[in-house]
């Protein structure tokens, strides 16, 4: 589904990603861990197509197509979704309006008919149930004044609505309380399927108790320095990142 080959990316002329290799197959969950500033969000944004980051070397293939030159919206309509570490506030634009437009843009892309506001309302309410969110969040401006946890939950709501093939979840677990973590994880698990891939960036083992990763990778200073199975996360939890390079 996603193949990243020798990916180098920089921002403002500073190289952040220094040769990433990663393959995510349909049905797999890959956890990305690593110290602050190691490039986890950068990797997520580069795959999603943030215009500030320049791919200087390497390839990003999504379902066999090189997407490195495509705009973020084209990638999104192909089925890539990024749940932001810091979701952006958009005052004046209601959550439901954004989601309806985005969902319809994706439907159009697939030659499907758009949903009118009423039809969309039915559809979105089912997704709200999935993440146990109050319908009042539909009418509020996107992330505007949302608490940290509410923002994260809203990202997962949007993901549920847009039903992407590849989900890049950047620290969706940070800032969630214990119940919210369970609810959000359940939501992610329900959307997960054999034809979808998940890249889950996290600092903590606890979300991995709910969402079992097939692989865990450690990103350090722009490189994946170690990969392993789910037990690697536990190892890291007890040893920290200091040791990682030696293990390698």
């Amino acid at each position: 589904m996603l193949q990243i080959k020798n990916l180098h990316a920089s921002v403002d002329g500073i190289e952040i990603l220094k040769g990433i290799n990663l393959e995510i197959k349909a049905g797999e969950v890959h956890a990305i861990m690593g110290p602050n500033g190691s490039g986890k969000s950068t990797l997520s944004k580069v795959v999603a197509g943030h215009p500030a980051y320049e791919v200087t070397q390497g390839e990003i293939l999504f379902e066999g197509t090189d997407i490195a030159e495509l705009d973020a919206d084209e990638r999104a309509r192909m089925g890539i979704f990024l749940a932001f570490q810091y979701p952006v506030e958009i005052p004046g634009v209601s959550n439901s309006m954004l989601m309806r437009q985005a969902y319809n843009a994706i439907r159009r892309e697939h030659g499907e008919e758009e949903l009118d506001p009423l039809e969309f309302d039915d559809y979105v309410h089912k997704k709200l149930d999935l993440v146990e969110m109050d319908p009042k969040f539909l009418d509020r401006s996107v992330n505007d004044g949302f608490s940290g946890g509410e923002k994260k939950r809203n990202e997962i709501l949007q993901m549920a609505v847009l039903n992407p093939k590849l989900a890049l979840l950047d620290e969706t677990d940070s800032g969630l309380d214990i119940d919210a973590l369970r609810i959000v994880s359940n939501g992610i698990n329900q959307i997960k399927s054999s034809d979808k891939g998940v890249m889950l960036v996290t600092h903590y083992q606890r979300i991995l108790n709910y969402i079992t990763p097939d692989y865990v990778h450690v990103l350090k200073a722009g490189r994946i320095v170690k990969s392993g199975g789910k037990e690697l996360a536990l190892e890291l939890e007890s040893q920290g990142y200091e040791e990682v390079e030696e293990i390698r």
């Binding site: 999603a48 919206d73 932001f84 958009i90 634009v93 437009q101």
Partner: peptide
Amino acid sequence: FYLKSRGLTDAATKEIL
């Protein structure tokens, strides 16, 4: 970027902002 990452075109992004 946030809006485009949801699949909105440049034109739709401009319109919604």
